[in-house]
Simulated assay, not measured.
Amino acid sequence: MSKTHEIKVTARDVQGKGASRRLRHAGVIPAVVYGGEAAPININLDHNQIWLAQQNEWFYSSILDLNLDGQVTKVLLRDMQRHPFKQLIIHLDFLRVNENEALTANVPLHFVNEDTSPAGKAADVVVTHELKEVTVSCLPKDLPESIDVDLGELKAGDVIYLSDIKLPKGVEIPALAQGKDHDDAIVTAKHGKEDAADEAPAAE
């Protein structure tokens, strides 16, 4: 189960590019909350707090509790706009979450025990992580912050697919319902010589 993380916000009454620019100069991020039956609302967030939060995986894949004057709204981050070269977050979009309805979210994959696996200990084997995250479907209460993929038994020549992931209770991977063609590889272990042979025709 995913933890929830509370973030205090304030209401934003003034809109427009000029107002948003003044907010950012004051260390405030303009944002919008939408989805569900309620109308979208405009809010402000503290830039320093969000800048620290966005350095953690949970900020992108966990249920967030937006606290507006004591009223909590459960949301998922849906979009973040950053300045092209400054360490500045320009705008955020949040989607309301219904605790009784399944949601779809991207969850990070954590690859564990690779160093102690036969493939990881072999000097001539290259282990490639083909995917860093997976799209899952579940109720909000079941949303994991991350999913571990155990590579302890990985050997040269092995391929681990989406269908090999041990999912937490209540969590599904929608892509697998679309057939074998959507059962993507997430980890491959190949001998270095095999990689060189695969690349040789392209080089020619």
Rank of each mutant, 00 (worst) to 15 (best):
G35A: 12
A31D: 03
V97Q: 06
E101G: 09
W51S: 14
L68F: 00
G18N: 13
A202R: 14
G157W: 05
G170S: 10
S20E: 04
E172A: 15
L77D: 01
E114H: 13
G70N: 07
F94I: 00
R12W: 08
H182A: 10
L52Q: 15
S137R: 15
E57F: 01
A102H: 13
T10H: 07
D46E: 13
K193E: 13
A19E: 11
A177G: 06
T116D: 15
V28S: 10
K74I: 01
D148K: 14
P140Q: 05
K180C: 02
T4W: 00
I160A: 02
I63S: 02
N44C: 15
Q71D: 12
V75H: 03
A31G: 07
E145N: 12
D181A: 12
L64D: 05
A189H: 00
K166S: 12
T116Q: 14
S20W: 06
A196H: 00
R21T: 12
V126K: 12
V134N: 07
G16A: 08
P118K: 09
V107C: 01
D79V: 02
Y60Q: 10
V72K: 12
I147W: 07
A119F: 10
K166H: 11
H129N: 08
I147N: 09
H191Q: 12
N98T: 10
E194N: 09
R24C: 04
K166Y: 02
G120K: 03
L176Q: 03
K74L: 09
N44Y: 02
A38Y: 00
L45W: 04
D46R: 06
I50T: 03
D164K: 10
A185S: 14
K166I: 09
I89A: 08
R78V: 03
K169G: 09
V159A: 12
N56Q: 15
I160E: 00
Q87Y: 05
E57D: 14
D148A: 13
A196Q: 13
N106G: 08
L68V: 02
